[in-house]
């Protein structure tokens, strides 16, 4: 498995990177950790005449948490997400989810920016970002703009990002909500058969807010407003969970693959949603 030849660029700043993208248009792609892109290139399913490596751009690195707002540079790796104690306190669901992505070696290289930006419906972070109601910063020739994760995904590998833009950072509010990321997969290193990210807050014994997002159950991540709404004002008991599951299943459109037929995907989604709600409620 050998990729086709390409020209390699390693810009030192984001403006330089954008300039390269502008120059080469469709013939250029950025590479972060490369663990989605490189296998595709090796299988010759992606041809990239100009590869723009973002590793030297310092402004894309680091995690900061200020005034209850979490800011994560796009080049922050999964490994950093797992080991950053500040993040674990501000948004513990990040560590829980990141530990379920790929394997140790891949997590050292794989970045949050790569995971959320390329639009692969199998990736875990996009659903999580929708659950957290994150905002992505996209930097382009005209400067920066913010796009909500919940508005970002259009189809498989199709997003709001323009070809000449680079995702530079991810932002969301720190949260003390109960949380859970439940993922069914065939083995370590696999994409989800079905996965659910759930965050809940509690007022007494009543659910006061709920966000539920689903992974690999459609050609985009699914933020299920209906599923969340079904929980608010309830005790998150069996009836409420059943209603939330039903709403969640209404929103998905899974396809058959080696992980199973469509009926099984629905079933697995049902299990992941209900387990994630129960687990998040227990932590709320």
């Amino acid at each position: 498995m050998i990729p086709a030849a390409f020209d390699y660029h390693r810009p030192q700043g984001i403006e330089d990177a954008i300039a390269i993208l502008q120059k080469h248009g469709d013939d250029a792609r950025v590479i972060a950790g490369g663990h989605s892109l490189i296998p595709m290139m090796k299988l010759r399913m992606a041809e990239v005449p100009n590869l723009v490596d973002l590793q030297d751009i310092e402004s894309l690195k680091g995690i900061t948490i200020q005034n209850g707002r979490v800011n994560i540079g796009a080049m922050v790796t999964q490994h950093e997400l797992i080991t950053n104690e500040g993040l674990a306190a501000a948004a513990p669901i990040m560590r829980e989810a990141a530990l379920q992505i790929a394997d140790p070696q891949v997590r050292y290289m794989g970045t949050i920016g790569g995971n959320v930006a390329n639009g692969d419906p199998g990736n875990d972070m996009p659903g999580l970002m929708q659950c957290l109601d994150a905002t992505f910063t996209l930097f382009g020739p005209d400067g920066a703009r913010g796009v909500k994760a919940r508005d970002f995904y259009e189809g498989a590998y199709m997003t709001e990002r323009d070809d000449e833009e680079i995702m530079t950072a991810i932002h969301f509010d720190a949260s003390t909500a109960g949380y859970a990321y439940e993922k069914q997969k065939r083995k370590i290193g696999d994409y989800a058969t079905a996965a659910a990210a759930v965050m809940l807050t509690k007022d007494g014994q009543t659910c006061s807010s709920a966000a539920i997002a689903l992974t690999n159950l459609s050609d985009t991540p699914i933020w299920s407003q209906g599923a969340g709404a079904a929980l608010i004002g309830t005790d998150c008991g069996p009836a409420a969970i059943k209603a939330a599951v039903a709403a969640g299943l209404d929103d998905i459109d899974p396809s058959e693959d080696n992980r199973g037929p469509i009926a099984f995907k629905y079933h697995a989604a049902r299990m992941m949603i209900s387990r994630a709600i129960a687990s998040a409620w227990a932590r709320a």
């Binding site: 390699y8 590869l51 050292y108 290289m109």
Partner: peptide, 15 residues
């Protein structure tokens, strides 16, 4: 300082 899979790293990235 990271364990990496060298089949999925371009030589250029290792500069």
């Amino acid at each position: 300082g990271k364990s990496v899979k060298a089949c999925t790293v371009f030589a250029a990235q290792a500069q």
